[in-house]
């Protein structure tokens, strides 16, 4: 199967390993990713702070390119990119005037025909393939699935494919792979996002709450889909734990890493060794490696 792919800025820089994992893992499931050409930043949360129109036109340009690409579906792993692109698509669908205004600027016009999917939607749609291809069981892995604040947070007229307040996408995939995901109170809570740059104290207090609940639940790792959540919880873990008197550490895996491991891929292949908090130890202990 061939689908379009929008990595976004993070997956080409600080979360390059997520880009690599996504390609590898989906390839193994028979899905070829075709990165759309000449894509631009989606605007993330920054564009909207400056200008409403900017917040729509930035992802809209990518939509135009995607609609013109000839593919019927485009996967966007990054939560912010997914969210902004999907919202822009919905907005343009409802507002013909705005759509015309924006399309006037583009050579590749937005038609609204392409389906925008999250990484979880694609994995869930191919769960049978995954079960078929998997050769390692993730027994003993007790993750808390951390969705972050953007993946299921949309205006009420936009249908969301997962339960908004208690999403189950990652749990479903992980249970199929014999892991034991644990329910907890911070599934969709904010990690502080970009505030880790400009308001460290506030961001650290948010991250520490997430950490404490996960530890109190008896989890042995986090599993995430958002590159910024992963970065925050992983890269800053030593710092915020020290600040808040937390002794234990938990590795923060991308969902694609878990899937990759189940498909028999190795640490170097998936670049799990690039994480700040060591995950190798846990995986060796559980005989997953």
């Amino acid at each position: 199967m061939e689908i379009a792919y929008y990595p976004g800025c993070s997956l080409h820089s600080s979360s390059a390993l997520y880009d690599l994992q996504t390609r590898l893992v989906l390839k193994k499931l028979g899905i070829n990713l075709n990165e759309i050409s000449d894509w631009n930043c989606c605007g993330a949360t920054s564009a909207g702070k400056i200008d409403d129109f900017l917040a729509v036109i930035m992802p809209a340009r990518n939509l135009g390119i995607a609609d013109a690409s000839g593919f019927s579906e485009m996967v966007i792993p990054c939560s912010a990119c997914y969210s902004k692109t999907l919202m822009a698509q919905k907005l343009l669908e409802n507002d013909q005037g705005l759509k015309n205004k924006i399309n006037a600027e583009f050579s590749k016009k937005v038609t609204g025909s392409i389906k925008i999917s999250s990484i979880l939607e694609v994995l869930l749609a191919n769960l049978n393939e995954l079960t078929g291809e998997a050769n390692k069981k993730l027994i003993g892995l007790k993750p808390v699935c951390y969705y972050g604040c953007m993946l299921t947070r949309f205006p009420y007229d936009l249908p969301v494919s997962d339960n908004v307040e208690n999403p189950q996408g990652m749990e479903t995939i992980l249970k199929t792979l014999d892991a034991n995901p644990i329910d907890w109170s911070y599934k969709t809570d904010c990690c502080g996002a970009s505030a880790s740059v400009n308001d460290e104290e506030m961001a650290f207090s948010l991250m520490s709450k997430i950490m404490q609940d996960a530890l109190a639940r008896g989890a042995n790792c986090f599993v995430v889909t958002c590159p910024l959540c992963q970065l925050n919880m992983d890269a800053y873990q030593d710092k915020f734990c020290e600040k808040h008197g937390i002794d234990k550490r938990l590795p923060v895996f991308f969902i694609t890493e878990c899937v990759g491991l189940a498909l028999g891929m190795g640490i170097k292949e998936l670049q799990i060794d690039r994480h700040f908090i060591d995950g190798e130890g846990l995986l060796k202990e559980l005989n997953i490696l």
């Binding site: 907890w184 109170s185 911070y186 609940d213 109190a216 639940r217 008896g218």
Partner: peptide, 11 residues
């Protein structure tokens, strides 16, 4: 409503 994991209390 959040749960306090070790006590079952609610926050």
């Amino acid at each position: 409503v959040r749960e306090e994991p070790d006590t079952g209390n609610l926050i």
